[in-house]
Amino acid sequence: MTKSELIEKLSDGHELLNKKDAETVINLIFGGIGDALSEGSRVEIRGFGSFSVREREAREARNPKSGELVKIPSRKTPFFKTGKELRERVDESL
């Protein structure tokens, strides 16, 4: 499912929601989560999961082609932990 398919499904499933509104809602949700993460905040969606930012330490690695040693600076990465309800629903569909 792509973002535009999600927008379509949302609009189809709700009487009052046209496609333009559905697009606004989807952009607000993912834009909002992204903005919160950029500020370093944690986002928790009950039953779905939580988004947080994790720090990756600086490390030295090798360029596999040239064998050259490169320093990789510390950086932040988004992390998603699946919520209990969704984790169980995904697994039980086996």
Binding site: M1, T2, K3, L6, K9, L10, G13, V25, I26, I29, F30, I33, G34, I45, G47, F48, E85, L86, R89, V90, S93
Partner: peptide
């Protein structure tokens, strides 16, 4: 929105949100 996403994932289908 989250209900649609949960049922989609429950069905084993992936969700691709461009830019996210």
């Amino acid at each position: 929105v989250f209900d649609i996403m949960k049922s989609t994932l429950e069905g084993g289908e992936k969700i691709k949100i461009a830019g996210f």
